[in-house]
Amino acid sequence: MKISGRAFDAVLSDLDGVIRFYDMAELEQSERAAGLAVGSTAEIAFAPETDLPLMRGEITKDQWTEAIAHGLADRVPHERGRELATTLAEAKFRADEVVVGMLRQARAAGLPVLLVTNATPWLADDLALLGLTGPTGLVDDVISSADLGIVKPDRRIYEVAAERAGVAPARCLFVDDRQENVDAAAALGMTGLLYRDHADLRAVLEPALRTGARARARGD
């Protein structure tokens, strides 16, 4: 639904670092108990050679945790590395309800809301736990790297997202917490928002919501 004066007609949002956040307290405790610096497991897990095959849907969760354990093998016994990797893979997470609320407002105002995320093959289960999908969920569609075999900032994932939103790239708002992903979206003509806190998202959404409200009041 294009409304005259509105800067964009669809919202494309990253998941992790914008909507979803993890509780790493258990993993940090386990790392200390193993004599490792906090963050050691994540450093291995999210290194490109370990992480990208997972994000492209090329390996399973078990294969990913095994790769993490292998990467930790020079610091802890394999079984301990496997335990740490499993703790990371099963870390609890939550949705930021303030962000969810703002995106629900955008959707209620007629803006399609889509997730565009570098994700694991079990993303659908995670989204169901968060309550973001289904008839009462938050999003209209999910563009997952694990489904497409393409990761941000590859331009093709943005093109797929715009096509599924049903609008031109230049009519999309793209929200992400990583600069390189925002830059790639902007290169396609999207309105890019580097997300840091609630105020960032509120500042870019509120003018669009006000414009939509005025248009509905006029019966446009």
Score class of each variant (00 low, 15 high):
residue 172 C to T: 13
residue 167 V to N: 06
residue 187 A to N: 12
residue 125 D to E: 14
residue 61 K to N: 15
residue 116 V to L: 10
residue 198 H to E: 04
residue 126 D to T: 07
residue 49 E to S: 13
residue 210 R to H: 02
residue 99 V to T: 09
residue 61 K to R: 15
residue 131 G to P: 04
residue 87 T to G: 02
residue 79 E to Q: 01
residue 59 I to D: 09
residue 91 A to K: 02
residue 31 E to D: 11
residue 141 D to F: 04
residue 193 L to S: 05
residue 190 M to G: 13
residue 101 G to C: 08
residue 26 E to N: 10
residue 35 G to Y: 07
residue 89 A to M: 01
residue 50 T to D: 08
residue 36 L to W: 02
residue 92 K to S: 15
residue 168 A to C: 12
residue 203 A to E: 14
residue 150 I to Q: 01
residue 36 L to K: 01
residue 105 Q to G: 12
residue 125 D to R: 13
residue 26 E to T: 11
residue 100 V to I: 12
residue 207 P to W: 02
residue 179 Q to N: 07
residue 99 V to C: 08
residue 191 T to F: 00
residue 90 E to D: 15
residue 150 I to E: 05
residue 74 D to M: 13
residue 119 A to K: 05
residue 124 A to K: 06
residue 218 R to S: 15
residue 103 L to A: 11
residue 48 P to I: 09
residue 101 G to N: 08
residue 160 V to E: 14
residue 210 R to Y: 00
residue 82 R to L: 08
residue 178 R to C: 09
residue 141 D to M: 07
residue 103 L to Q: 03
residue 40 S to A: 15
residue 44 I to K: 03
residue 8 F to V: 05
residue 117 T to Q: 05
residue 23 D to Q: 11
residue 118 N to K: 03
residue 86 T to D: 11
residue 35 G to A: 07
residue 84 L to I: 11
residue 13 S to R: 06
residue 72 L to S: 14
residue 157 I to N: 02
residue 61 K to P: 14
residue 162 A to F: 01
residue 218 R to H: 15
residue 169 P to I: 06
residue 104 R to T: 15
residue 144 S to Y: 03
residue 178 R to V: 12
residue 69 A to T: 07
residue 185 A to M: 09
residue 107 R to I: 10
residue 114 L to K: 05
residue 115 L to T: 01
residue 15 L to Q: 01
residue 41 T to W: 00
residue 62 D to Y: 05
residue 96 D to K: 00
residue 101 G to S: 09
residue 81 G to D: 02
residue 126 D to Q: 10
residue 199 A to Q: 14
residue 183 D to Y: 04
residue 10 A to T: 13
residue 158 Y to V: 04
residue 167 V to T: 10
residue 69 A to Q: 05
residue 30 S to V: 14
residue 204 V to Q: 09
residue 161 A to N: 08
residue 9 D to R: 02
residue 52 L to K: 11
residue 109 A to M: 04
residue 212 G to R: 02
residue 200 D to S: 14
residue 198 H to L: 04
residue 138 L to G: 12
residue 143 I to D: 14
residue 88 L to W: 06
residue 56 R to L: 15
residue 70 H to I: 02
residue 165 A to S: 12
residue 55 M to Q: 07
residue 46 F to D: 13
residue 198 H to P: 08
residue 159 E to P: 04
residue 2 K to L: 13
residue 83 E to L: 06
residue 135 P to M: 12
residue 44 I to R: 09
residue 108 A to K: 03
residue 150 I to A: 05
residue 118 N to Q: 07
residue 48 P to A: 14
residue 107 R to A: 01
residue 93 F to Y: 07
residue 196 R to F: 13
residue 160 V to S: 10
residue 154 D to K: 00
residue 93 F to G: 12
residue 45 A to M: 07
residue 65 T to I: 10
residue 53 P to A: 10
residue 46 F to H: 07
residue 138 L to T: 13
residue 105 Q to V: 02
residue 58 E to N: 13
residue 42 A to P: 13
residue 58 E to M: 09
residue 129 L to R: 15
residue 100 V to Y: 00
residue 216 R to D: 15
residue 49 E to F: 01
residue 141 D to P: 06
residue 69 A to N: 09
residue 22 Y to P: 08
residue 112 P to D: 03
residue 208 A to L: 08
residue 179 Q to L: 07
residue 193 L to F: 01
residue 129 L to E: 15
residue 156 R to M: 00
residue 63 Q to G: 12
residue 96 D to P: 09
residue 139 V to N: 15
